[in-house]
């Protein structure tokens, strides 16, 4: 019961974020960088949410919903990952660490791909809603344009359900993390660094400008040189 209430609140907030992602407002509250820390905070660990949110944001920075093109669903993944990893970490002595985050990410990443299917299904449902509105308006009922808001229910419901489930499965992830010996922890920490490296590469690719690799390379070179020089000075 103690865990059920925060899990339910997190699932509701995640559902609202799924609605905010495309259907309403689009204030970027559903971006991983924002959503993961908020959900983490609801579980009592905003720092862990930020740890998960930053690499996810970078991984999906290039995903843009242009016309009929559907990007991966970063919101669903960020919400489910936070809902599973943060409570799992709360049950461990070390809290949320890199190995736990990697285990969660490897397990839940397919949700980003599944989220696309969810969105396609949502669009098909919206087509039915729009057709019904058109029929009713044609028959003289102008108030049928309010059916517009019905399009928000499906993304809310599915994301709510998935996040609630992820949160309930958190103890399993915690158990898995507890089984990891020192060698496995070392390997998983390496995997987390790899996630950071891939996410940085994704971030550079996300900037659709032919000069982006040049500016990124220059900036990286300056920073590495400064780090080396600073260390040398010490």
């Amino acid at each position: 019961m103690e865990r059920l209430l925060p899990s339910a609140i997190v699932a509701v907030v995640a559902g609202l974020a799924a609605v905010e992602r495309k259907g309403a407002f689009q204030l970027m509250l559903s971006r991983p960088l924002v959503l993961a820390p908020i959900l983490g905070l609801l579980f009592g660990d905003g720092r862990a949410g930020l740890l998960l949110g930053v690499p996810l944001e970078l991984l999906f920075l290039g995903g843009v919903n242009l016309g009929g093109n559907l990007p991966h669903n970063e919101t669903l993944l960020a919400a489910a990952l936070t809902a599973m990893v943060v409570p799992a970490g709360a049950g461990l002595s070390g809290g949320v660490d890199a190995p736990l985050a990697v285990l969660g990410l490897a397990l839940l990443f397919p949700l980003a791909v599944y989220g696309r299917k969810l969105e396609r299904a949502s669009e098909q449902r919206n087509a039915e809603i729009a057709a019904e509105a058109l029929r009713r308006v044609q028959a003289g009922d102008a108030s049928a344009i309010r059916l517009n808001l019905r399009g928000l229910f499906l993304p809310f419901g599915v994301t709510f359900g998935i996040c609630a489930l992820a949160s309930l499965c958190a103890p399993l992830l915690g158990w898995l993390r507890a089984q990891c010996g020192p060698a496995a922890v070392l390997a998983l920490s390496g995997a987390w660094h790899a996630v950071l490296a891939v996410s940085a590469a994704c971030a550079i690719r996300a900037i659709r400008d032919s000069r982006a690799p040049f500016f990124a390379g220059l900036s990286a070179a300056v920073l590495v040189a400064a780090a080396v020089a600073f260390r040398g000075a010490l």
Binding site: P110, G190, A194, V195
Partner: peptide, 30 residues
Amino acid sequence: LLVAAFLFLPRLGVPRSVYLGLFCGLALGA
């Protein structure tokens, strides 16, 4: 790994790049 991810990302896409990165990271970490 970072440079390879940047180069092959358009061909592999984000999900495959992440899983390949995870395997490489596991190997490097171990």
